[in-house]
Design a protein around this nucleic acid. Structure first.
Lengths: 144, 144
DNA sequence: CCCTAATAGTTGAATTTGTAACTAACAAGC
DNA sequence: GCTTGTTAGTTACAAATTCAACTATTAGGG
């Protein structure tokens, strides 16, 4: 049992993680929001399709741990922007395969470059060992 | 300029941070949500008042990097639950000092114990050095 | 086949959050 | 002591998220 008098919320791990997540998401948000009018849910879907190729909404949900309603609306928005197309799966017509269009791939490539640079910038203050440890720790905490 | 073909969203730091933050917040959320009907904004305000004593809404905002509307609503909710009271500051009647009631302090103490245990549990897989590095890195990323 | 259960995905309503405009109180200059 | 500007906090409205119910399709008995 912990002693509550010396417990400081500012070193509480979930709190620290939230603060770091918010702060680090802020600068990158500008790019997909201002330049492409996308929401966070939308670029996440875009990134998964861009990196791992065509897949169903359900598959994205499993990978990204996103709820299916979020994905449904993100997919609808991306379709409206003509960044992706849907195609019913022959063998199971409930599911539909999502594929990036040429435009979608271009946007993906552009944002990838930005994200890569930004990531490097965030990691710059840390040594290679520290970077590796940080990522391992976060993956573990995220239960990935 | 990064090469976009080897860029993986799953090692993108803001993404990892978000996943870890969500996952780690989940288990603790149960306690303040189910047992006390509080939102995240509310327990944050409660924790700050519990740890650092009576202060104004503005002071909480600075410390916790929370927007003033969030705080305003959280304070109203906590007041309704009778976890805190307000008192106009004599010398500047725009501001009001927020103070935890006896009940609020009890809830705070209870949640502190839970949070302390949970924090220890989250950190258990890591060595002391790793824990220290992790916290330092997160503080830096959060610009605290 | 037909009935029930399960799954993929969508939609609508209720919460929650974010943005901007607002009130009230103070401060500074004239 | 007015006028202008600034700050503390609230409120109204819009945007986003969550939750629950819904449709359509498939799967598995009997």
């Amino acid at each position: 049992m912990a002693d509550q008098t010396d417990f400081d919320i500012r070193s509480f791990l979930p709190y620290l993680l939230n603060q770091a997540a918010e702060e680090s998401s802020l600068a990158f948000q500008h790019h997909y929001k201002q330049r492409y009018g996308m929401l966070r849910t939308e670029w996440r879907v875009l990134f998964h399709l861009g990196r791992y190729g065509a897949m169903t909404a359900n598959a994205i949900g499993t990978r990204a741990k996103m709820h299916k309603t979020k994905i449904s609306r993100a997919v609808a928005a991306l379709e409206k922007k003509r960044y992706l197309t849907r195609q019913k799966v022959e063998t199971d017509r409930r599911r539909e395969l999502l594929t990036l269009t040429r435009t979608g791939q271009t946007v993906y490539a552009d944002l990838c470059a930005v994200a890569g640079d930004y990531d490097a910038q965030l990691l710059a203050p840390f040594s290679a060992d520290e970077q590796a440890l940080l990522k391992r720790a976060l993956e573990r905490l995220a239960k990935l």
